[in-house]
């Protein structure tokens, strides 16, 4: 079952990528793409976000070591890898959420449309308005469903008369409107886990970001709720760039256009650092896993 889905998904991905190539006119053919990480990276022409030699530290501890990674526009990029390999940490450097953790610091460049978001003139608040985030545990505000969605637009200073429209639009977009339209004044906390997570996605969409980061958005959900969120992600990828961290390999295979594989590497002092092992089209990562392992062992990526 999973396998069949996976194959179907691969075909879809293949198609969408080829269509993308035609539009972009990159001229790269599929076999060339399969040749390795450098070529796959090069394919991401005009990346919406581009990490260049990014290291993330917590105090003296280097949690993520030297990552180069472009994020393609209107695609889903998945981060997979074992626990403690720095996936979430890296994701949180995309919208400067790491700023909130005392002692956390990012080295290297995190370019958003060519601008380093850790640059001296950049306002973290402005970054977060463009790069939204959905968290592992659904975290709706203890306010009404309406107020949950309206929070972001209100902070942005959107006028009151637009609010009903924004709320309906965002909830519709997050495939939640039909379930909640009659109880908009009830607390967002009263919804089920899956609905809460879609509420959080709707809340994120309401401020109309460019990129949506999802940190294991289905980790606390049952399979049905997970399937709904995954469908939603595919739909949203038509308009938004999505970066998702997941522990679930199948999930990455089902939804992601590209996949980055991270692992924790132990250095000479017995300290673990997160490293990017391989970044490629999802199909290549999953259909030729042996190659990535082999390359990893032979040190080409290590």
């Amino acid at each position: 079952m999973v396998k069949r889905e996976l194959t179907n998904q691969m075909e879809e991905v293949e198609m969408s990528v080829e269509m993308g190539d035609q539009v972009l006119g990159s001229g790269t053919t599929a076999p060339a793409r399969a040749a390795g990480v450098t070529k796959a990276s090069r394919q991401v022409s005009d990346p919406v976000m581009d990490l260049q030699k990014v290291h993330v530290f917590y105090g003296d501890y280097e949690a993520v070591r030297e990552v180069d990674l472009p994020i393609a526009s209107r695609e889903i990029t998945a981060f997979i890898g074992p626990s403690g390999c720095g996936k979430s940490t890296l994701l949180r450097s995309f919208n400067r959420m790491n700023d909130l953790i005392p002692g956390a610091r990012v080295e290297g460049k995190v370019l958003y449309h060519g601008v380093d978001i850790y640059g001296p003139d950049v306002d973290a608040i402005e970054v977060r308005r463009r790069v939204g985030m959905v968290f592992q545990k659904p975290n709706p505000f203890p306010k009404s469903i309406f107020d949950n969605i309206a929070y972001g637009p209100r902070v942005l200073g959107r006028s009151k008369k637009d609010m009903d429209g924004i709320v309906e639009q965002s909830l519709t977009r997050a495939a939640l409107w039909d379930e909640v339209k009659d109880k908009l004044d009830e607390s967002g906390m009263a919804l089920s886990g899956g609905q809460q997570q879609r509420l959080c996605i709707a809340r994120c969409i309401a401020v109309n970001p460019d990129i949506i980061l999802m940190d294991e958005p289905c980790a606390s959900l049952d399979p049905i709720a997970t399937a709904k969120i995954e469908d939603l992600m595919r739909e949203l990828a038509e308009d938004y760039t999505i970066v998702i961290v997941t522990h679930n390999m199948q999930q990455a295979a089902r939804v992601a256009d590209r996949t980055a594989f991270f692992t924790a590497e132990v250095d000479g002092q017995n300290v673990r650092h997160g490293r990017l092992v391989e970044f490629d089209l999802t199909e290549d990562i999953f259909l030729n896993p042996r190659r990535s392992t082999e390359d990893y062992i032979s040190g080409r990526f290590g």
């Binding site: 968290f135 929070y151 972001g152 902070v155």
Partner: peptide
């Protein structure tokens, strides 16, 4: 007040003052 609520608010582009007054104090 759970950290998740603050993070949710910050991730929507709120300033510290907005997070404090509109999310933390009401909660």
């Amino acid at each position: 007040v759970p950290r998740g609520l603050r993070e949710g608010a910050y991730a929507l582009g709120s300033s510290r003052r907005q997070v404090t007054l509109k999310v933390v104090v009401p909660a």
